[in-house]
């Protein structure tokens, strides 16, 4: 097997995993704490890409785009939460699915109206454009390494926030027993708004990070959203640790499956069959994994303690 290619694909898989984690972390917090199914989380991914990308293009600085995107997404997240989602907390999951489905249509069309149907191309700053040698003849794009580092830093920061700070303690208290935390004097509605805002920033960051590689496009968050669903189901709803591990595993399996499954299948079947079965099976791989895990552990790999299932 080609080790240069293997290393590259492992890193790519890791990068996909990081993007998934940024999405899944927000989703799993919103699920875990507010018991809200939010399909529009993918829209926040898209809005982050468009808003941050526009700022980057206007100011000519990608870093400024990232930095200014954060307060922008926080505000957008809080507005969406306070205007619409707040009324959905006491509703059943069906109502939440439908209302947030309506929000997706609205956001997609709003982005089409503001930015036009073509999407947005955001160039990389010159210092991030290029490749770096990793030794053993392996080179890898600087920007992709940059995304992995940013993602890991955010994951670590989130771990500190949830695990070590007072706000994190309140979040965990809200997640394990909302009523009890409220009775003890935690301002639950305010906490919800804050958590949703954090989730919106993380989703927006994920969307903006991916933009220089692909481009900002309408509906770009939807495929990522479904993968993030797979991640949080596998990881256990409400568990940040589960979301992290499941994200990386999903990213690796999906990326490696797509590049190497043809070769692996060659051991079992004739080459023309392997070539046609390869793409088909690899596109299904992570879903098969999800089904298998749920068959044995219906609550996911890391169900959060005390969340009542």
């Amino acid at each position: 097997m080609d080790y240069v290619l293997l290393t590259e694909q492992v890193l790519n898989g890791f990068q996909l995993g990081i993007i998934l984690f940024l999405m899944a972390a927000g989703l799993t917090l919103v699920f875990g704490i507010m018991d809200l199914v939010n399909l529009a989380h993918g829209s926040l991914f898209m809005i982050g890409a468009f808003v941050g990308g526009t700022i980057a293009l206007l100011t000519g600085s990608f870093v400024l785009g990232v930095l200014l995107m954060i307060p922008a997404m926080l505000v957008i997240g809080i507005v969406v939460e306070m205007t619409t989602l707040r009324t959905l907390y006491p509703r059943d999951h069906l109502d939440q699915v439908l209302a947030t489905f309506g929000l997706i249509l609205f956001f997609n069309e709003a982005v089409r109206l503001i930015w036009g149907p073509e999407g947005l191309v955001v160039p990389l700053p010159s210092w991030l454009d290029g490749v770096v040698a990793l030794g053993f003849g392996i080179t890898y794009p600087v920007y992709r390494i940059f995304t992995i580092i940013v993602g890991l830093l955010v994951a670590f920061g989130l771990y500190l926030l949830v695990g070590k700070t007072r706000i994190g303690m309140l979040i965990r208290a809200g997640a394990s027993n909302r009523t009890m935390a409220g009775a003890l004097g935690v301002n639950i509605p305010k906490l919800f708004t804050l958590v949703f805002g954090i989730g919106a920033v993380l989703a927006g960051l994920a969307g903006l990070i991916i933009t220089p590689i692909t481009q900002a496009a309408i509906g770009m968050g939807e495929d990522v959203l479904i993968l993030a669903f797979v991640v949080i189901v596998v990881g256990g709803i409400g568990s940040i640790r589960g979301a992290f591990i499941a994200s990386i595993v999903t990213g690796l399996i999906d990326t490696l499956g797509r590049s190497f499954l043809d070769d692996i299948l060659l051991f079992f079947m004739p080459s023309n069959a392997a070539e046609s079965a390869g793409p088909a099976v690899s596109s299904m791989l992570i879903y098969i994994l999800m089904a298998a895990i749920l068959f044995f552990r219906p609550q996911g790999l890391f169900p959060p303690k005390g969340a009542g299932g």
């Binding site: 949080i232 189901v233 709803i237 219906p298």
Partner: peptide, 13 residues
Amino acid sequence: VYFIMITLALAQM
């Protein structure tokens, strides 16, 4: 929620 997301994921498969 698990049921909603699994049916979604299996269909997307």
